[in-house]
Computed example of a mutant assay.
Amino acid sequence: MKDINVTMLLIALGLSFLALPLGCPSKLMFKEPLNNVTVKVGQDAVFHCVVKDLGGHRVAWNEVESKAILAIHTHVVTSDSRVKVSHDRALEIWTLKIRNVSLEDSGSYMCQLNTNPMRSQKAYLNVVIPPTLRSREIPEESVVSEGGPAELRCMAEGIPRPDIIWTREDGGPIVIRRDSSVQKFENFIGDTLHMPRVTRWDMGNYICTAKNGVEPTPRERITLHVRFPPLVRAPDPLIRVIPGGSFSAHCQVESFPASLNYWLDPEGKTVNNHGNRIRTSQEFEPPFKTTFSLSIENVTRADFGTYHCVSNNGQSKEVKSPITVEAWRGENGSGSPPDSHTHPLIYTHVQI
């Protein structure tokens, strides 16, 4: 804080703070300690000095580090217009108020009595700044390859220095895989989240939150994408159907980026929709699963054979899985087709 010529002001005010009375009343005492104050930048800081039986003595407020006198009794000495003092005679409280504090106001303040010897109390003004994230330095997404490392970073500023806390938006654990260990964290503390070896299951939104005990606490989202070639699963690799009946074949694909999926018929030709009799469809389940289906009604002999569901996302050659459709005749040429779900699940990485 800026100060003015204190000596000249004291003369002008006719104050006698520097003339210390000999001795002091036996009952004069500080009734309460001078408490430390913590406020955010821009708020007001208030110190209360409670003195019993002050008598003819006076109270002064000082900045300890600069040794600047801020106020004497009810008179403000400093030229800083933000400083105010007041006195509650009934409660014997002397108050120093600093409006709209800045970081430079941090430090020790003293409530001083002109007794002989001098009596004083000190307290600390801690000016804090809420955390802010350096949003321009935080990417919205990161794309890495499966099996390789991933590194997400958030930088923050504030006083005291903020901690960066990482969580997954879906509530799942953060998994750190190393050569000899796997660790799981509900939250991870540090500017940088380093994952030495990622899998597709690490894909998703990660939240970094800056905290230093001062509100508000800002957050940023970083989306982690993990590239990997398609994995095709055929839940029912063998389907038996009565001629004239209908069937649905399904393939499940895991892939990122999203793959191009299609069906090949027994002659190796791409299957296209044909009215209501032949239909293809697919359903995406974030972040990397897709189920695509082939449905055929009014089955004829030409529809029997081995179909292939094919997937390609540019991370490898095309991957396909076979599904065989056979005629079901039953015993003596009659009966209903069995429940196809009794067939084992096939995981396929056949490349063509």
Rank of each mutant, 00 (worst) to 15 (best):
L193Q: 04
L193I: 02
L193H: 04
H194N: 05
M195S: 05
M195K: 02
M195H: 00
R197Y: 14
R197S: 08
R197L: 07
R197A: 02
R197H: 15
R197T: 14
R197C: 06
V198N: 00
V198T: 03
V198S: 04
V198L: 10
V198D: 08
V198Y: 07
T199L: 00
T199H: 11
R200C: 02
R200H: 11
W201C: 03
W201A: 04
D202F: 13
D202P: 14
M203W: 04
M203A: 12
G204D: 10
N205C: 05
N205F: 10
Y206L: 03
Y206E: 01
Y206K: 01
I207K: 07
I207H: 02
C208F: 09
C208H: 05
C208G: 15
C208A: 15
T209N: 08
T209V: 03
T209Y: 07
T209K: 15
A210Y: 11
A210F: 07
A210E: 11
A210P: 06
K211W: 13
K211Q: 15
K211I: 03
G213Q: 08
G213F: 13
G213M: 10
G213Y: 15
G213W: 13
V214L: 02
V214A: 03
E215F: 09
E215S: 15
P216C: 08
P216T: 03
P216H: 09
P216G: 07
P216R: 06
T217D: 08
T217E: 04
T217G: 01
T217V: 03
T217F: 03
P218K: 09
P218I: 02
P218Y: 12
P218T: 06
P218C: 08
P218R: 14
P218N: 10
R219V: 13
R219F: 06
R219L: 05
R219E: 15
R219A: 10
E220S: 12
E220R: 14
R221T: 15
I222K: 10
I222W: 04
I222R: 10
I222V: 12
I222D: 08
T223G: 07
T223D: 08
T223R: 15
L224I: 03
H225W: 05
V226P: 06
V226Q: 04
V226A: 09
V226W: 01
V226G: 00
R227I: 01
R227A: 04
R227H: 10
R227C: 04
F228R: 01
F228D: 00
F228W: 02
F228M: 00
F228K: 06
F228A: 01
F228G: 04
F228Y: 05
P229G: 08
P229W: 10
P230M: 14
P230W: 14
P230V: 14
P230C: 12
P230G: 12
P230T: 12
L231S: 10
L231H: 07
L231D: 03
L231Y: 12
R233W: 09
R233K: 08
R233V: 06
R233N: 06
R233Q: 15
A234I: 14
A234Y: 13
A234P: 00
A234G: 14
P235W: 09
P235D: 05
P235F: 07
P235K: 08
D236K: 10
D236T: 12
P237Q: 02
L238S: 08
I239N: 07
I239T: 11
I239E: 01
I239K: 03
I239H: 02
